[in-house]
């Protein structure tokens, strides 16, 4: 569906995106995760045909973004962070205009509108002027304009920014509902949002793609044996001391529970669980359970970006030495 190879985009001398490559299959919801300035919006703008890449290629459904940009834009729906709305128009007028702008006939727009109203749940405000709508409804109208022409790819840049919790739940429902008819690209710096709506995650850091995969795959890629969860019996201080004393354990967290139970988690440098269990038992700590911890997306993201930053610094130092 989407093939991106060596995508690079400069703003002046500053590289906003560098050598980014990925591919996305049909009917996938893929999340772009990254801090502000990581290159998410730039990548999405290139995919939406708003700006041209400095280098690299973008193919969407076999169409080259550089060779046939108009044909490409017919297949794409784009919602920027701030929905592009003509506020003096009613919702129905605006969506009709957008549909025709995308090359649809008036009759086709009229037949498509009820479906779009249903997907975005905006039928009851279709006669209202957009300037009178709340921020949440404006976002929904923004999505409606992006899908009015039944595109192959929908690109949503920070779709939940500025929404209240109820609106976020509604927006999540709308986004996941799009999956049945098209591929969806969502960018966000809100980790929980990406975690809950996306099938796959692309992590950008300083304009480079540092990791991609499902949340589980990214967790599995963490250093060494990964993070383990432990259920132990003993005094909290003694348990903590025993864990700290074991070499090859870091980032220890331990909390007391009833009946002298302690629930702990720790990162292992290698697959040395047997040695850890033997060490804890010899220290007088009862080991009731040891298992893989479900890594939080926040932790995965921090690890990935910190590792990418460390690699970049190391390369810079090596270049300095030579």
């Amino acid at each position: 569906m989407i093939e991106v190879n060596g995508l690079t985009r400069y703003y002046g001398d500053h590289p906003a995106v560098q050598d980014v490559s990925f591919s996305i299959a049909d009917n996938e919801i893929v999340g772009f995760l990254g801090l502000n300035g990581a290159g998410k919006s730039t990548t999405l703008k290139v995919l939406a045909g708003l700006i041209l890449p400095s280098a690299g290629t973008v193919h969407i459904a076999g169409v080259d973004a550089l060779e046939a940009p108009d044909s490409l834009r017919e297949r794409i729906g784009f919602l920027p962070e701030e929905p592009p709305l003509y506020r003096e128009m009613t919702v129905a007028e605006f969506l009709s205009f957008c549909g025709q702008l995308k090359g649809m006939s008036g009759a086709r727009v009229r037949s498509r509108l009820p479906e779009v109203y249903k997907i975005c749940d905006i039928g009851h405000v279709s006669k209202r002027v957009i300037s009178e709508l709340s921020h949440g409804y404006r976002k929904r109208v923004g999505i409606a304009q992006a899908i009015i022409h039944d595109p192959d790819l929908v690109i949503l840049d920070e779709p939940i920014s500025g929404l209240d919790p109820v609106q976020i739940v509604e927006m999540r429902r709308v986004i996941t509902g799009l999956k049945s008819s098209c591929t969806v690209l969502v960018s966000s710096h809100i980790l929980s949002e990406i975690s809950q709506t996306c099938d796959r995650i692309l992590v950008l850091n300083n304009g480079r793609l540092v990791a991609e995969g499902t949340e589980e795959e990214l967790a599995a890629r963490q250093v060494g044996g990964g993070r383990v969860a432990l259920e132990l019996r003993g005094e909290l201080a003694a348990v903590r001391a025993a864990l700290d004393a074991f070499e090859g354990v870091s980032k220890v967290q331990a909390d007391a529970a009833p009946d002298r139970l302690v629930r702990a988690s720790a990162s292992l440098d290698g697959d040395n669980r047997e040695a850890l269990v033997a060490h804890l038992v010899s220290a007088g700590v009862g080991v009731r359970e040891i298992r893989d911890a479900e890594a939080e997306l926040e932790q995965i993201f921090l690890d990935l970006t910190q590792r990418a930053d460390a690699t970049t610094q190391q390369q810079a130092l090596q270049q300095g030495d030579t």
Binding site: A48, G49, L50, D70, S71, R73, E74, I76, G77, F78, P80, E82, P83, P84, L85, Y86, R87, C98, L101, K102, G103, Q145
Partner: peptide, 14 residues
């Protein structure tokens, strides 16, 4: 100013 240029830019118009 209002960001609606994005709408025109992402449309198949020259």
């Amino acid at each position: 100013q209002t960001g609606t240029m994005n709408l025109l830019d992402s449309s198949p118009l020259s």
